[in-house]
């Protein structure tokens, strides 16, 4: 299934792996930060509600 990349196999494969790694890491960071801030805001609003 893997195409024959010839003498540039290392360059092409590493370009794809590094780029995809960066994109996935960026997406995970955005999602994780979003969840953390949402959880913190919910907890804060709940606490404020209880305190009146």
């Amino acid at each position: 299934m893997m195409p024959d990349l010839g003498r540039y196999a290392v360059e092409v494969t590493s370009a794809y792996l590094v780029s995809l790694g960066l994109l996935v890491a960026l997406a995970l960071w955005y999602v994780a930060r979003g969840r953390r801030v949402r959880r913190d805001l919910d907890a804060f609003e709940q606490k404020r509600g209880k305190n009146g």
Binding site: L26, Y30, V37, L41, F44, R48
Partner: peptide, 20 residues
């Protein structure tokens, strides 16, 4: 997709800061 996700997070973070 990431800008929409990030903007939603920033809006929530700003709200929390304002409430605090």
């Amino acid at each position: 997709a990431l800008v929409l996700t990030g903007t939603r997070t920033e809006i929530r973070a700003r709200r929390m800061k304002a409430l605090a």
